[in-house]
């Protein structure tokens, strides 16, 4: 027997096998018990030819194994390829929940201000008139104090009309600097309509430290507006009036819907009013025992529903309270 001729013949038979079955027949022929090679191995008498034949056997076994893997892989591929499967059908659906849009906005605001080093304060929804009105420099005759605007539980307990009472409580409890935002439900004696709901959510911010300026307020609100409405937005400030700030300014952001060209949302002005702000009135600082000559501060307040409605085009505030799953699932 000529090992070289045998190997050449066997290798070409392996390469020619086109299925695992054919390959198996060839394997029996070249490596089976009755094969020429096995016969020769049994008859080996000298060490030299034993090594040669064994090496040949190993090479052929490796070749068969390699060819078999290739053929089986190809066969599997072909089988899988013949399966017809519509990949556009939906997957198996786990139950899906959604965060309320106001929660999403709230978290964004919280994260923006935590990023600026502010603490987040929840505060209570039932407040006393001292912390909500007196300490915030609202004179006894101020319209907000009227039972026509505010929901009273009794003569000096009310549902908070803004979250800023918690600012007073924080300032009362510690020395400056104070950097905080308070977010949560506030209550007004409003009838329910498209843009009004007696309960809504506010973020109110406060920074009190040495050397705080109106410029710091502008920079902070610019940061907030760009985070919410896009990095290209501009902000504008105009004079306003609030008892707890002096100077008081109204914040407006450039209209991100029309880019200043004018549209219904911005009432054709190119600007959208977002909320009130200003430098903390010295009376407020004095009310909590701070010295307005030592520290200054700024404060601002913005409605979360307003942000949500503007940014997402939600036309009616009642949608937030109706909780129709078709609405909730959009966000």
């Amino acid at each position: 027997m000529d090992p070289n001729a045998l190997e050449t013949e066997a290798q070409s038979a392996i390469a020619a096998a086109s299925s695992p079955d054919e390959l198996e027949q060839e394997r029996v022929r070249y490596l089976g018990r009755k094969s020429e090679l096995k016969q020769a191995l049994r008859e080996v008498r000298d060490r030299e030819s034993g090594m040669t034949l064994n090496a040949l056997r190993e090479r052929l076994e490796t070749a068969f194994a390699g060819r078999e893997e290739a053929l089986r892989g190809a066969e599997l591929e072909q089988l899988l390829g013949e399966e017809s499967f519509d990949v556009t059908l939906p997957g198996a659906e786990p139950p899906r929940g959604h965060y309320h849009l106001i929660t999403q906005i709230r978290r964004e605001v919280e994260d923006i201000f935590v990023g600026l080093g502010y603490e987040v304060v929840d505060g209570d929804e039932v407040e006393d008139t001292y912390h909500l009105f007196d300490a915030l420099n609202m004179a006894p005759g101020h319209v907000t104090r009227s039972p026509l605007h505010t929901l009273y539980l009794n003569g000096d307990t009310v549902l908070r009309t803004e979250t800023s009472a918690s600012q007073i409580r924080v300032m009362e409890s510690r020395e400056p600097p104070v950097y905080m935002v308070s977010l949560g439900r506030v209550y007004r004696r409003d009838t329910i309509e498209a843009k009004n709901f007696p309960i809504f959510h506010q973020v109110e911010g406060l920074a009190v430290a040495e050397g705080i300026t109106l410029g710091d307020l502008k920079g902070t609100l610019l940061h907030l507006c760009r985070a919410f409405f896009g990095e290209d937005q501009q902000v504008r400030f105009s004079t306003d009036f609030f008892p707890f700030t002096e100077p008081s300014v109204q914040l407006a952001v450039s209209c991100f819907l029309c880019n200043g060209a004018g549209c219904r949302t911005c009432k054709y002005t190119g600007w959208i009013e977002l909320g009130g702000s200003g430098l903390v009135d010295p009376n407020v600082l004095r009310n909590v025992g701070y010295d307005p000559e030592q520290v200054s501060g700024f404060a601002f307040g913005i409605g979360l529903e307003r942000i949500a409605m503007l940014r997402h085009g939600v036309p009616d505030i009642r949608l937030f309270w109706e909780n129709d799953l078709r609405f909730l699932a959009q966000f």
């Binding site: 080093g117 502010y118 430290a209």
Partner: peptide
């Protein structure tokens, strides 16, 4: 101060307070 400020609001530069403390929820 407000009387003076309100005629120059647009020129007030955008700055951020200089903070020294960290914060988290």
């Amino acid at each position: 101060v407000e009387e003076v400020a309100r005629f120059h609001l647009n020129e007030v530069p955008f700055t951020l307070p200089l903070r020294r403390t960290g914060a988290r929820l």
